[in-house]
Simulated scan of single mutants.
Amino acid sequence: MKPPRRALLFVLALACPALVLAHPGTAVHAHGGFVDGALHPLTGADHLVAMLAVGAWSALSVRQVWIAPLAFVAMLACGMLAGAAGLVVPGVEPMIAASLVGLGLLIAWLRRVPALAAAALAGSFAFFHGAAHGTELGASIPLLAGLLVATAALHLAGIAAGQLVLARHRWLPQMTGSLVALLGITLLLRLA
């Protein structure tokens, strides 16, 4: 089996537990365990697209491809712990939407970005995503672990998509980035 197929199968396997939930229609995050944390990024387009976009952008624009995803995962954990501890982070929802606009534009732009700048940008976006998760879900260790594993898997899928698909055609990153930015703009307009 080729590596891209393995990555796709891994991401699809993360979604499979949702098919066997004993209580469909109830809150997915009722128990706060590992599976709940792993499923959470898959339940909202804003988080799902942002995490895939970080991987794709990193694959297309950052020489050290893992630096932005690692910074994202680390700061996602920090933001989640802060949100769970009760820290009120102003502008969480607008910043999540703005992160989609920014990531979309960065994907479409197709310019090399220094590793430190990529890590700082991804980390700042991630803190807001994490604060939203922490406020909404709390921060049990299993929940946090599931969320971080799913986030890393989505980054991996985004990197694979960036390297194997988007990098092959100049117009494809521009179209994909524009769609990601459009989702962010739509979310911002809904918040207004």
Rank of each mutant, 00 (worst) to 15 (best):
D46G: 10
H47P: 08
V49W: 08
V49Q: 09
A53D: 01
G55N: 04
G55H: 06
A56T: 00
W57N: 06
S58Q: 03
A59M: 08
S61K: 05
V62G: 02
R63Y: 07
R63I: 08
Q64S: 14
Q64E: 14
V65S: 12
W66Y: 12
A68H: 06
A68E: 09
F72S: 04
A74M: 11
A74Y: 05
C78V: 15
M80A: 02
G83Y: 04
G83I: 08
G86E: 08
G86D: 10
L87N: 05
V89K: 06
V92R: 02
M95I: 06
A98H: 02
L100S: 04
V101G: 11
V101R: 06
G102S: 05
L105D: 07
L105W: 13
I107C: 13
A108I: 05
A108F: 04
A108N: 02
A108M: 08
W109P: 06
W109E: 11
L110W: 08
R111C: 07
A115F: 07
A115S: 15
A117V: 15
A117G: 09
A118G: 12
A118C: 13
A119E: 07
A120N: 08
A122W: 01
G123C: 12
A126M: 13
A126D: 12
F127G: 11
F128T: 06
F128P: 10
H129G: 00
H129A: 00
H133K: 04
H133R: 02
H133E: 03
H133I: 02
H133A: 10
G138M: 10
A139I: 12
S140V: 09
S140E: 11
S140M: 07
I141N: 03
P142Q: 02
L143F: 13
L143I: 03
L144S: 14
L144E: 09
A145F: 01
A145G: 05
L147R: 05
